[in-house]
Amino acid sequence: MASTQVERETCLRKLAQNKMRQGNYSEAIAIITCLLDRHPNNANDYNNRGFVYYQNGELDAALADYNKAIQINPDLAAAYNNRANYYAAKKQLIKAIADYDRAIDLNPLHVRALINRGITFRDLKMYDRALENFDFALRLGQLPGHAWAERGRTHHLRGDWNYAIADYRRALPFFPEGRQKQQIQAWIAEILSPFDF
Rank of each mutant, 00 (worst) to 15 (best):
P144I: 03
N116H: 09
A149F: 09
L157P: 00
R8G: 06
L12A: 15
N116F: 04
A96K: 03
D123I: 00
F121N: 07
R170P: 00
L172P: 05
D101K: 06
Q17F: 15
K95I: 00
L15P: 03
R151M: 08
N18Q: 13
G50K: 04
L138R: 05
G178N: 09
F136G: 00
A77D: 11
L143K: 08
A28G: 09
A137T: 06
C11T: 12
G57Q: 10
I70E: 06
K90I: 02
R151N: 08
A164K: 04
I70L: 10
L192C: 10
P108E: 08
H156N: 08
Y66Q: 05
I188Q: 02
A189N: 14
N24V: 13
T120E: 02
R139F: 10
R169Q: 15
H155F: 15
Y163Q: 14
C34N: 15
L76D: 06
A62G: 07
H156R: 05
Y80Q: 02
E27H: 11
Q92Y: 08
Y86A: 13
D99T: 03
C34M: 13
N41S: 14
A2I: 14
A16P: 09
N82Y: 10
P176A: 15
A78R: 04
D65R: 05
A113F: 07
C11R: 15
F51Q: 03
R112S: 14
P144H: 03
F195C: 03
A69D: 05
I119F: 06
I188R: 02
G50P: 06
R139I: 05
R151V: 04
E9M: 15
A69Q: 10
A130K: 02
Y80R: 01
H155M: 02
Y25R: 05
P144D: 00
Q55Y: 03
I165N: 02
L93V: 04
